[in-house]
Design a protein around this nucleic acid. Structure first.
Lengths: 211, 211
DNA sequence: GACTTTGTTTGACACTTGTCAAGAAAACTC
DNA sequence: GAGTTTTCTTGACAAGTGTCAAACAAAGTC
């Protein structure tokens, strides 16, 4: 029988084996994410993923039930890496200005250095409107990102002796709108986009809190 | 020779003929937009478009050079219908409150009644990050939408005796962020989304102007 | 009414896609 | 080291894709 490679399957055998499986999965997911980030969801085939990795296309199907299973795993894997990006800034900032500069720095940095991942994220979120199977994962990440923004905003309010003037979903939608605009713009012409993003966030952040 | 069916081609013959061609194009585009709005860019094939129309798949290729040509035409056709949605509200409003209620009403209305179009728009904008050929059209629409938002905001400022506190791209990114959040959420669970959107816009709009 | 142009149908092509299965290779067990 | 289990390769499949071209129908022209 073929090993059931999916979701929350139990495998009584070999503890070290299940670990190895998980490692292969992660390796495949990382490779897949690279390809997905470059080509986008629609244009990425399992064979393309396999070609850009050290494995053959059969291996992909050995470790993942089907394409959705792979993508879904990728998305979940990705989320573990993305939503903690600003934690250090939030924790170490000692003034509102401090927090803002740190936040802007990290944000423009990830915009530039991890463009493919962000492109993929916005792609997948759009796809989730058409492909129900993607929705749970996308919703979970959206939730995580919202909380991330909320942590920043409440901390910012604390440091400036103010209080958030909008609720968490609103704050997330607003800032995400600015970031998505930057990602789309960056894909087209990278030059001035990061500075523009910084400037716009600088305009907006103070308006999200009030005494 | 096959009639060159694309872009800005000149055709010296028959004035009434070129009109008929344009009408067929529009008919095909409208049909294609319906299918695209339901299935999304990735899952929509030319045959599917043809099947959901009164034409055969050969006709599609007779009037459009290739798939991109068709999609591109659809997008350009779509844009002529979308960016003037709030013009009447902007013109007839006699107070800030008037404008806001009118704006919110129209926005939640289009969210509900034209969901597929909005889904498609966000899908295409994401695709444009990967498919260069889509970029010019997407950028043009983005520009149009930005101007649309800007007209609303400046009018709002006028009526309330204030001035815009953010520039046009920022205002657009913020409001678009809220709207996209609503569209994505609406695709998943329609119930409370329109009201939430209204509430959030109501929170945000006053913050975009200042005395 | 013959003839040309324009529009449409149909079927084919080359290719890519996800999926799977049979068997080779490697790892592991005793 | 034989035998078993796990991992991987390879090749195949059916289905779907964009594209095109040859046959056919309709409309327009003289």
């Amino acid at each position: 029988m073929i090993a059931v490679a999916s979701a929350a399957e139990e495998r009584p055998a070999r503890i070290s084996g299940i670990d190895k499986i998980e490692r292969r999965r992660v390796a495949l997911a990382e490779s897949a994410l690279k390809t997905l980030g470059e080509l986008g969801y629609a244009r990425t085939s399992l064979r393309e993923i396999a070609n850009n990795s050290e494995f053959t296309h059969g291996v992909v199907h050995y470790y993942f039930r089907d394409k959705i299973d792979l993508i879904s795993y990728c998305v979940r894997y990705y989320k573990t890496k993305c939503a903690r990006r600003y934690d250090e800034v939030v924790e170490t900032a000692t003034s509102g200005e401090d927090l803002v500069t740190g936040f802007l720095g990290k944000m423009t940095q990830t915009l530039v250095e991890e463009t493919p991942m962000h492109k993929l994220w916005y792609d997948l979120r759009a796809q989730s409107m058409f492909e129900e199977q993607l929705r749970p994962d996308v919703e979970a990440i959206d939730q995580l990102l919202e909380e991330m923004i909320w942590r920043i905003l409440t901390r910012y309010a604390d440091l400036t002796g103010t209080a958030p003037a909008v609720d968490a979903p609103t704050a997330y939608a607003l800032i995400d709108g600015l970031f998505e605009q930057a990602v789309v713009g960056y894909a087209a012409s990278p030059e001035k986009v990061p500075d523009l993003l910084s400037g716009r966030l600088l305009q907006v952040l103070p308006k999200l809190v009030a005494a």
